[in-house]
């Protein structure tokens, strides 16, 4: 385990979503919990780390309203915390609606909800900033952000 990880509950506790009371709160919390598991899941996917071995990057990933700041070093997520972090720069952001993440992580995602760029095309996600690290490692990001798929449906049910 690499230093800098927050436990799923800690990530949620840092996030204003925790204080919201709405019908979508359960989905929002489940999405944040799932994001918090990504660094550890990545540690269990050495082939993905190898694919990202030339990648050092600060980026925002997560739900549209409450993204997480990810620090990636040599393909590993060495820090993942609620954004914004005071005066910490980032190069690109990929943010999607909580409903989009929940759909993306289904074991058999529905058509149009099954790919990061399908989500941007349908307006459920947005890519912003300097896209270069995202595009040079496009399959890496698709696969890293799909890591919760194996657990999400079970956890959310």
């Amino acid at each position: 385990m690499t230093a800098g990880f927050r436990s799923p509950d800690a990530v949620i506790a840092e996030n204003p979503l925790e204080r919201m009371s709405s019908a979508s709160n359960a989905t929002d919390n489940a999405v944040l919990k799932a994001f918090a598991t990504i660094p550890a899941l990545l540690e269990q996917a050495p082939e993905l780390i190898v694919r990202g071995r030339f990648l050092d990057c600060e980026c925002l990933l997560g739900p549209t309203g409450h993204p997480l700041h990810a620090s990636i070093r040599a393909g590993r997520i060495v820090d993942l915390t609620s954004a914004p972090v005071l005066m910490r720069s980032w190069r690109f952001a990929y943010r999607a609606s909580p409903a989009a993440w929940a759909a993306y992580w289904q074991p058999a995602p529905r058509p149009g909800w099954h790919d990061l760029l399908a989500l941007t095309k349908r307006g459920e996600a947005a890519i912003e900033g300097d896209l270069h690290p995202f595009m040079t490692h496009l399959q890496y990001f698709k696969d890293v952000l799909a890591l919760p798929r194996q657990h999400f449906a079970v956890a959310a049910s």
Partner: peptide, 12 residues
């Protein structure tokens, strides 16, 4: 890499 990664999402 980028060509393949772009079209990968078009596969069911």
């Amino acid at each position: 890499e980028v060509c393949a990664a772009l079209v990968s999402g078009l596969i069911a």
